[in-house]
Amino acid sequence: MNIFRLTGDLAHLLAIIILLLKIWKTRSCAGISGKSQILFAIVYTTRYLDLVTTYVSAYNTLMKIFFLGSSFATVYLIYVKFKATYDHNHDTFRIEFLILPAVILALLINHAFTPLEILWTFSIYLESVAILPQLFMVSKTGEAESITSHYLFALGSYRGLYILNWIYRYAMESHYDLIAIVAGIVQTVLYCDFFYLYITKVLKGKKLQLPA
């Protein structure tokens, strides 16, 4: 474990808590893409299958349980509890166009052709594009509540910090995983446009308005 990966995991944890609090406190999931949250639930389910077979550390196990539980809780809040506030009209990204390519790519490019490894690889590829429905929704509505933009900033930062972790691990342990690194770079790049808007607008107290 290193400081980059620890702060990355904490940023990830913070993002999930911000989102859960926003939905629970406002009793509304307006502006939140349910489709992205479904993709995240798929990502954690396919990535953490080794939860019961492999013990890495208490930290590792606890975080996996939290990510799994919170992602399903978020999907439940959006599609069941606060269904009336779910914005169907703006959450229209076709997630099958993200899932299928991730499946195909995972079958073609992986470290080992075993079920667990293929599913892990699929989850890595899917996570890199899982935020697209949310970013698409923000662009369609043309704006985002500031709490949603804080969520996106924390979520985008987590994989950015992981990139620093991978550089650190390559330098210190000469350990690297190209699949995770390439997907992590793609994932972080997708947030760049949003990061620019967040830093130039939201941090100045303005509302996040995308150019129409």
Binding site: D9, V56, S57, Y176, L178
Partner: peptide
């Protein structure tokens, strides 16, 4: 390569 090692990252 790295992938052979136990996956210790989230």
């Amino acid at each position: 390569k790295g992938a052979r090692r136990k996956k210790d990252e989230l």
